[in-house]
């Protein structure tokens, strides 16, 4: 996976620009913390694995109902650096989504709104490289949350273990046989002989994702390569 220097400079420039432009203090500090992590080797990079559960798949209509995150490095995931929040959504929970995340109405009826702790989330991830499984969910939902709350954008570089796995197992079409292997979190983990966790609890999924990235790095990557090479 190679990124052009342009893209990296883009992140650098974007963060500098947003640090000037945004008015919300917490967002300004977030952008001021910068993306220096992109320019250091993977083995030394400060990372934070993150996962969210939502009421549905539409970032404009659906809400975040829980966030889990854990700071980690390539050889340690300290659980005392783990954090977890439940959020009360604006709309009702659909039966469909409850079967996925198993969070019921009872559990969240007394939970705070996302707005009351989003600052804490931003503080936790500021200056670190965020690692998620499937950036296409986390990225727009978090951005949407910031837009709603602050009226300003929240964007940052992400290491997406799902995208990395897709590349790792990619075969040219003439070598493909049968169905493409799954790149769902659980399937990816099995390829690295990681244990099966009870899925869809945001903190356990964040820990799962951190473990998966440790495994991917142990099997496929040169730890001296710069973090930027793995970001999107």
């Amino acid at each position: 996976m190679t990124k052009t220097t342009d893209q990296i400079d883009d992140w650098q420039i974007t963060f500098e620009k947003l640090a000037e432009e945004v008015n919300t203090p917490i967002l300004r500090s977030f952008y001021q913390a910068g993306v220096a992590g992109l320019r250091i080797p993977l083995r030394d990079a400060p990372m934070v694995a993150l996962d969210i559960e939502t009421t549905g798949l539409d970032p404009n209509g659906d809400d975040i109902i829980s966030i889990g995150l854990v700071e980690f490095s390539l050889d340690r995931i300290p659980l005392n650096a783990a954090q977890y929040w439940l959020a009360k959504p604006h709309g009702p929970l659909t039966a469909e989504s409850v079967t996925i995340h198993e969070i019921t109405h009872d559990e969240i009826k007394d939970a705070p709104r996302l707005s009351s702790f989003l600052d804490e989330v931003l503080t936790a991830i500021a200056g670190k490289i965020v690692v998620v499984h499937c950036a296409a969910i986390e990225r727009p939902f978090l951005n949407q949350a910031a837009e709603k709350l602050y009226g300003e954008p929240l964007i940052f570089p992400i290491i997406d273990t799902m995208a990395l796995e897709a590349e790792i197992i990619h075969k040219p079409w003439w070598k493909r046989f049968g169905r493409q292997p799954s790149i769902r979190l659980d399937s990816c983990r099995q390829r690295y002989h990681l244990p099966r966790y009870r899925a869809h609890q945001a903190l356990i999924d964040a820990i799962s994702c951190a473990e998966l990235f440790q495994a991917q790095a142990a099997h496929h990557y040169d730890h001296d390569k710069l973090t930027q090479d793995f970001c999107c």
Binding site: D75, I77, L79, N80, A82, Y192, L194, E211, A218
Partner: peptide
């Protein structure tokens, strides 16, 4: 105690 656990992945041979 559980909160103080650190998780580590080792590839075979590590």
């Amino acid at each position: 105690m559980v909160k103080d656990i650190e998780i580590q992945y080792l590839r075979a041979g590590g």
